[in-house]
């Protein structure tokens, strides 16, 4: 009797569970599929608008032509991509070194923080487009000028996030370090820096995107001399020549680069935090 009851009851539960599983699968699939469908529809609409309105390709090229340009101009575009990527990457590197370095100095010395923090904020809030022309007047090397531009934009999120992280180490742990007679360096190395890591990585993700913006602005202002032309310069040059398909191709590459940088930094963050930080832990529901 009891066995029969269980057998009768079990399928009902299974059906519920199966429905939930189906819903989960649909959601997983939808996460990829829905944006893809939107993309295809947008491209189709773009194509139709060009055809219906007879828009010439030097005003708005059809998507097919942009794709073709991506392929035909691949050598020029790839070279430009590498140059922009190099500027972005170097700027991000300098932003990390500068941002973390300043954050450590700020937390080690109150006076240093009091003296210099306001200027870090001023540097951050002044639009880079306004400063960039001056930078290239005073700095001869285009590469260094570009790095400086990108650095000014990118270092602040690293600085402010890392400072916050360094200060947010658990109070009881700080007491414990005092009780065990930790030196300043030990406290920084074993307590403050690990505690700041999640904050730093959050800042890094923002800085990655900003470094790209900084690099693009720098290319616009600096032009090409001595460094070779990056993607932003390619856009500028192509637009003067009304080579609009190439403008679009370069634009797509810049956007893709931004996405890849963001994804790479997110992956880095996940790998570094997955063992211990709440943000990286998957929960069973």
């Amino acid at each position: 009797m009891a066995i029969a009851d269980t057998a009768a009851a079990a399928p009902v539960l299974d059906e519920e569970e199966a429905r939930r599983a189906r819903a989960r699968r649909r959601e997983r699939l939808g996460r990829w599929l829905m944006p893809l469908i939107v993309l295809v529809m947008m491209i189709f609409l773009w194509d139709r608008i060009c055809v219906w309105n007879n828009i010439p390709h030097y005003i708005l090229p059809r998507p097919g032509l942009v794709a073709e340009t991506l392929w035909v101009d691949r050598v020029i575009l790839f070279k430009a991509l590498l140059i922009t990527l190099r500027t972005t990457f170097l700027a991000l590197l300098v932003a990390v070194i500068g941002g973390v370095g300043l954050a450590v100095l700020f937390t080690q010395s109150k006076f240093f923080e009091m003296s210099f923090y306001p200027y870090a904020v001023i540097l951050q809030v002044t639009p880079i487009v306004a400063i960039a022309p001056l930078i290239f007047i005073y700095i001869q090397s285009k590469l260094i000028g570009m790095l400086l531009c990108a650095w000014i934009v990118a270092f602040f999120p690293v600085l402010s996030n890392t400072t916050l992280g360094l200060k947010s180490a658990d109070h009881n742990l700080r007491d414990l370090f005092s009780i065990y007679g930790a030196t300043r360096w030990q406290r920084l190395r074993y307590l403050q820096l690990p505690a700041a890591l999640p904050y730093f990585l959050g800042g890094l993700r923002i800085a990655g995107g900003l470094a790209l913006i900084g690099a693009v602005v720098a290319e616009y202002v600096a032009g090409t001399g001595g460094v070779g032309s990056g993607l932003a310069f390619t856009i500028l040059e192509s637009s003067y020549r009304l080579n609009i398909p190439r403008v679009f191709a370069a634009l797509i590459l810049i956007a893709a680069m931004g996405v890849v940088i963001f994804m790479a930094l997110s992956l880095l963050s996940h790998l570094l935090l997955r063992k211990w930080h709440e943000s990286a832990i998957k929960r069973e529901s």
Binding site: L176, K275, W276
Partner: peptide, 24 residues
């Protein structure tokens, strides 16, 4: 010292946490 909270370093394993007084 044992505080009211366990006060462990979340980024370190159990053994590394116990190592702390010696490490310092």
């Amino acid at each position: 010292v044992v505080f009211q909270e366990p006060t462990l370093m979340p980024w370190a394993t159990v053994a590394q946490n116990v190592w702390l007084p010696w490490r310092l």
